[in-house]
């Protein structure tokens, strides 16, 4: 028996909107730790990792570890039927091939339930060890999304370079080149507006912008985004989900052929 009650149901709606274009089908894993997902895009180039910790749910019952295969587009269709202020409860019986989403309006005057068929999803799980990164950049998530969108109108790839001066995003294409430099800026009124650059050593890596633009669909989840870079590792683009966990995207840097 599985029963997860999420008072801030909009979080789950935002998570689905953030990942449904990158991943088609995925297994949601439920354990005592929480509700999680790890899935790669169809080309196995980008990976999404979601964790919603059990403590973040108002009610969390998961009698045994369970993996539920879902089509994310279909799940997003169902969650779109929930209001932004609704409480969302996920329910599944042991051995059932369906999951039920229950939506309660804040005043309890409207209660809906939607039952969705589960599916067998054959997925490859990767072990991602904790790593020390050469540089970690924290910046407003809307600023990062703006930069990725702007640069993708000029070129297909972005070079992210971190030095002690700050972080530089560069691209080039048929019509010209573009460079955006964000300097460390901690003298802001609100902490979420700060740009913080932690650098152990300078790093410069090239990434496909179309994946970055996909990752920025996570922007509504958090005011800030953290970009962790190392020369021998995939970049990690992380959106913290307040008091619950995180949505992380991984992408290997492009390399010379």
């Amino acid at each position: 028996m599985l029963e997860l009650r999420l008072v801030q149901g909009s979080l789950l709606k935002k998570v689905l909107e953030a990942i449904k274009d990158l991943v088609t089908d995925a297994n949601f894993d439920c354990s005592a730790t929480g509700f999680s997902l790890q899935a790669m895009d169809s080309s196995h180039v980008a990976l999404v990792s979601l964790l919603l910790r059990s403590e973040g749910f108002e009610h969390y019952r998961c009698d045994r570890n369970i993996s539920m295969g879902m089509n994310l587009n279909n799940m997003a269709k169902m969650l779109k039927c929930a209001g932004n202020d609704d409480i969302i409860t996920l329910k599944a019986d042991d051995g059932s091939d369906t999951v039920t989403f229950m939506f309660e309006s804040p005043t309890q005057d409207k209660i809906s339930d939607f039952e969705m068929k589960l599916m067998d999803v054959d997925s490859e799980h990767l072990g991602i060890p904790e790593a020390e990164y050469h540089a970690i950049v924290r910046m407003p998530s809307t600023e990062f999304a703006r930069i990725c969108k702007d640069l993708s109108s000029i070129g297909d790839t972005v070079v992210i370079s971190v030095t002690k001066e700050g972080v530089k995003f560069s691209t080039s294409g048929d019509i010209g080149t573009a460079n955006v430099v964000c300097r460390q800026n901690t003298t802001v009124d609100k902490p979420e507006d700060a740009t913080i650059v932690e650098m152990n050593e300078p790093v410069s890596l090239t990434f496909a912008l179309r994946y970055f633009n996909s990752f920025t669909k996570g922007t509504p989840l958090s005011n800030t985004v953290t970009i962790s870079l190392s020369s021998e590792l995939p970049v990690v683009v992380e959106y913290k989900i307040a008091e619950m966990g995180h949505l992380r995207f991984y992408l290997a840097p492009k390399i010379e052929e």
């Binding site: 790669m40 080309s43 196995h44 180039v45 980008a46 990976l47 490859e124 799980h125 990767l126 072990g127 991602i128 060890p129 297909d156 790839t157 090239t206 496909a208 021998e232 590792l233 995939p234 991984y250 290997a252 840097p253 492009k254 390399i255 010379e256 052929e257």
Partner: peptide, 14 residues
Amino acid sequence: EGFQPLLKNYYNSI
């Protein structure tokens, strides 16, 4: 534009 490696080139399957 460079070669795009697969993630399993970096992480092991579990």
